[in-house]
Write a protein that binds this DNA or RNA. Structure first.
Length: 539
DNA sequence: ACATTCAGCGCC
DNA sequence: AGGGCGCTGAATGT
């Protein structure tokens, strides 16, 4: 079916009005339209920026049957690089795409003015119509170009079979939004505030740190306590989470870490409350990361602390379910590498516990063992692993080196697999997941250098992980439209489902998680569980 | 005064 | 000396 082409206006600037759009259709039907009217149609509609469109429909009760094809999403896929540019200046942004289509600078400027509602002066109506007509028409050409680009880069199947259906499923979710329990919110906020007060008091009394947000004072106190490395920025790169780790054996970094955490959490929660309504409508970016993960923003609910997640509640008559892959990425790594030992260890049970026992002598440090294992999956060098192991356990580097070497030495094929992957990157100039989603070698680092292949492993592993979760979302959308994918969480999916069919949907979710994983990774035996997430789930 | 960067955390 | 993100408040830049 021949698609139509739609431009739309950001509704924030047209409060109370219907969402204005400008349509170009091959049959000639076109001009200014009400976007809501288009949602019930069947034919595909090409747009720029699906999350923006969803913003305009947020909270409306409407059944969306149209399939939208977002050209920005297609461009993101073919670019295959991380964005360094500020928001709105990425190569897949509307403005850049229109420039690629040969639209003149002044037309683009006037269009962006219209679509964002940023214009301060009235634009001549006739001129505006000319501009919109010209741009809407050019989308046709842009679609053809991008289609070619998708084909030559091996992303066409990925785009039409995965990204288009997923972006449409998440568009519907963005329009539905989700509900916040203000009673729980108040409780969590209260708890966070008093924790923050306690931490501030201790910092003041025990460490004479009167103002924890004064960076120079913090640096001075850390230096007094022997943490002079904290001032050396050159050492920061490998120091992700260093306050927390150092906090295991010293109260100053521990308290500083807590201060940071509670401060941030408090303002996040305050912002949630400030919406005034019980409903929020976050934006779902279905190509939020280079590896294909879905990223949720405004608010960034995926980053809520686990302790604060209870503020998310189901709508009346519905309940939450949270199916969750256990040891997801190690499982994918096992299948990818074909390492027999890793496959059998994964299939036999927990991978993190044995490491916890080897390093710390007990199961209690599973959390840190997990960090180390995941770091290993992401290609951290042995020295790096030894460093975190040593800091987390408090044992000397020498001891940790032996333990780490012995533990990971069991997985013989992993090294070969890694070398093969790096070789592939050098030869092809790119690394993908299993269905396109390539990331390309940038101009930066020298051949063979570590910086050049840092991301190769995660592109394959994380990329495969996000592909599997997207397959789950697509099948769910088809097989159980009552099951709403509220929060995709990378290795899990928070769903809101009708209370009356919760148990059936729970079984279906379990089956879908398993079968979609098996489809990609037949050599491993995936496990799914539904508890212990911090969300208030049914049961 | 406003914008960008930095440093650090949250999540997976 | 581990990948992918967003967000916050302070620091720095214009």
């Amino acid at each position: 079916m021949r698609p139509s082409y739609l431009l739309f206006r950001n509704p924030v600037h047209e409060l109370g009005q219907e969402l204005a759009g400008f349509l170009h259709a091959p049959e000639g039907r076109g001009g200014f339209v009400n976007v809501v009217d288009l949602c019930g149609e069947s034919g595909p509609i090409v747009v720029l920026g699906l999350p923006d469109l969803a913003d305009g429909l947020s909270g409306k009760t409407l059944s969306i049957t149209t399939t939208f094809v977002d050209l920005c999403l297609a461009k993101r896929l073919v670019v295959g690089q991380k964005h360094q540019a500020r928001a709105g200046a990425e190569p897949w942004s509307q403005g850049k795409l229109l420039a690629q289509a040969g639209i003149s600078e002044s037309y683009i400027e006037q269009y962006l003015c219209w679509t964002t509602g940023a214009c301060t002066e009235e634009v001549d109506a006739a001129l505006l119509q000319t501009v919109l007509q010209s741009i809407a028409t050019s989308l046709q050409k842009l679609l053809r170009e991008l289609d070619d680009e998708l084909r030559t880069k091996g992303e066409r199947e990925r785009f039409f079979d995965i990204e288009v259906p997923v972006s449409n499923a998440m568009l519907r979710q963005q329009v539905r939004g989700l509900s916040i329990d203000h009673v729980r919110l108040e409780g969590v906020l209260e708890h966070t505030s008093s924790s923050l007060a306690r931490v501030r008091r201790q910092l003041r009394m025990r460490f004479n740190l009167t103002n924890p947000s004064d960076r120079s004072m913090v640096r001075a106190r850390l230096a007094e306590a022997g943490f002079d490395k904290a001032t050396n920025r050159a050492l920061r790169e490998g120091d992700k989470g260093w306050l927390e780790l150092s906090g295991l054996r010293h109260d100053l970094p521990r308290l500083l870490h807590e201060h940071q955490t509670f401060t941030r959490d408090k303002s996040t929660l305050l912002k949630l409350g400030a919406f005034g309504s019980t409903e929020v409508f976050p934006r779902y970016n279905t190509q939020g990361t280079i590896t294909g993960r879905i990223v949720i923003t405004e608010p960034s609910l995926q980053n809520l602390r686990r302790e604060s997640r209870e503020v998310i509640s189901p709508r009346p008559g519905r309940v939450l379910l949270y199916p969750d892959f256990s040891q997801y990425e190690p499982g994918i790594l096992a299948d990818e590498s074909g390492d027999e030992q890793l496959i059998s260890d994964y299939n036999r049970g927990d991978l993190y516990e044995p490491l916890s026992i080897a390093l710390f002598g007990d199961r209690a440090h599973r959390k840190h063992a997990k960090t180390i294992f995941i770091a290993f999956c992401n290609g951290m060098t042995e020295e790096g692993l030894v460093e975190i192991a040593s800091r987390a356990s408090g044992r000397p580097n020498e001891e940790c080196r032996d333990i780490v070497a012995q533990f990971f030495g069991k997985y013989m094929r992993l090294r070969d697999w890694t070398e093969d992957l790096f070789g592939e990157l050098e030869n092809q100039g790119r690394v993908g997941s299993r269905l396109g989603n390539y990331r390309y070698l940038g101009a930066g680092a020298a051949p063979g250098s570590r910086a050049r292949n840092r991301w190769a492993i995660s592109q394959r592993i994380q990329g495969t992980a996000s592909l599997i979760l997207k397959r789950v979302i697509i099948r769910l959308d088809k097989e159980a439209p009552d099951c709403w994918p509220v929060l995709p969480m990378h290795d899990a999916l928070l769903c809101e489902v009708p209370k009356s069919s919760a148990s059936e949907i729970r079984s279906l979710l379990g089956e879908l998680f398993i079968s979609c994983f098996r489809e990609e990774c037949p050599s491993v035996d995936p496990r799914v569980h539904f508890e212990g997430s911090g969300f208030v789930v049914d049961g």
